[in-house]
Computed example of a mutant assay.
Amino acid sequence: MAELILIRHGQAAFGSDNYDQLTDLGRHQSAALKQHLDRTGWHPDCILSGTMVRHSQTLKAMQLEPDDTHAGFNEYDFHNLLSVRFDGQTPTDVLQDRKTHFRILRDTILDWQGGGLEAAEESWISFKQRTSDAMSAAMTTQARRVLVVTSGGVIGQLVAATLNAPSATMVDLNLQVKNTSVSTFVFSKGRVSLNGFNATPHFDLQPELLSYS
C-alpha cells in the first residue's frame, strides 16, 4: 500500500484584497509541519500541489519543491460564488468578518451543490470531477509516499468522496480543515481508503499556531 497526504496550505490573507498569499503565521505553520515530518522520518517520494500562490508559498516555507502541479487541486472560487449570490455586491462583513463569512459561505455552497448559482464560473459537478481527476493522477505513480498541498474545500470533497458521503458532508468537513493540517489516505491499484483527517501534531507544543482560514 502507498500513502498519500493532503496538506491544506498555511494561513492565507483573509479579508485582504488578495487572499491568495500566506501570512507570516502561515509561513510559520508550514515550517512547523516540515519540522514534524523530518522528526518522524516521513519523506515524500513525490510532491504535488495545486497551482495557486498560497500552495507554492506553503511548499516554499516547507523548503520543498513540487515535482508537478495539477489545477484540479485548486480551491473552488468562493469569491465568485458569493458574488453570484449577492449579484456582484457581496457585503463587506461577508468578506471581512470570519463568523459571518463562514456562516454565509456554508449556505452558499449548499445552494451551489443543489444546482443553484447557475451563473457561477464553475459548477459543483465540474468541481467534483476535477478534484476526482486530480486525486486519480496523484495515485497514478510508483511513489510510495505522495505529498499534496491543496485547499480546504478540495480536502473536504476528497474525504467525503472517499467515504461515499452525501455532498453536504463536504461542507462540514471543509469548514473544519485547519491550516497545514494533514489528511492521510492509503491506496493500491486504484483503490483508496481514508486513514486520517485534519491532523495537526505539529501544533501540539505550539497551539498558538492554530488557524482555520
Rank of each mutant, 00 (worst) to 15 (best):
S49P: 12
D68S: 13
G50K: 07
R106M: 05
G116K: 14
A71P: 10
L117P: 15
T90D: 06
D97N: 12
L81V: 04
P91Q: 02
H101G: 13
S83V: 08
M62L: 12
H70G: 00
Q63C: 10
R54D: 09
G115V: 09
Q113H: 12
G88C: 01
L59S: 07
R54A: 06
S83G: 10
Q89Y: 06
I109N: 08
K99T: 06
N80Q: 08
H79Y: 05
F86M: 00
F127Q: 03
N74T: 01
D97Q: 06
D45F: 11
G88Q: 04
E75P: 04
T51Q: 10
D68P: 06
K60W: 03
G115L: 06
K60N: 10
T69F: 00
T90W: 07
R103F: 02
E75Q: 01
G116T: 13
L105T: 01
H101E: 02
L82Q: 07
P44T: 02
T69H: 07
G115Q: 04
D111E: 15
G72V: 01
P44G: 12
Q63N: 14
Q63K: 10
R39S: 15
V84K: 05
E121T: 14
G114K: 12
Q63G: 13
D107P: 03
F86R: 00
D107Q: 13
H79R: 12
I47E: 15
D107V: 00
G50D: 06
F127H: 00
L82I: 03
Q89D: 14
F86I: 00
D111V: 14
I47Y: 15
S126G: 13
A120D: 12
T100A: 13
E121F: 14
V84F: 06
T100V: 15
Q63V: 08
S123D: 11
Q63Y: 05
E65K: 11
N80T: 00
D77I: 07
M62N: 11
L110G: 06
G116H: 09
V53D: 08
P66T: 08
K128F: 05
T92A: 05
D38P: 00
M52K: 15
V53P: 03
Q129C: 05
R103D: 04
G115W: 04
Q96V: 13
A119H: 03
F102C: 07
W112S: 13
P66C: 09
E122F: 06
H43V: 08
N74V: 03
T90Q: 04
S49Y: 09
D77P: 01
C46V: 09
R85I: 01
T58L: 11
D93A: 01
I104E: 15
K128R: 09
N74D: 12
E121Q: 13
T100S: 10
T100F: 07
L117Q: 12
L117T: 14
F86L: 01
Q129T: 10
D93R: 10
H36Y: 15
N80L: 02
W124P: 05
E65H: 05
D107N: 10
E122I: 06
L48A: 14
L64E: 04
L81S: 01
Q89K: 14
D38K: 03
H43S: 08
Q113M: 15
S83L: 10
K128C: 12
D38T: 04
T90C: 06
W124D: 02
Q57H: 08
T108Y: 14
N80D: 14
E65F: 04
K99P: 02
D107S: 09
R39I: 03
W112D: 11
N80S: 02
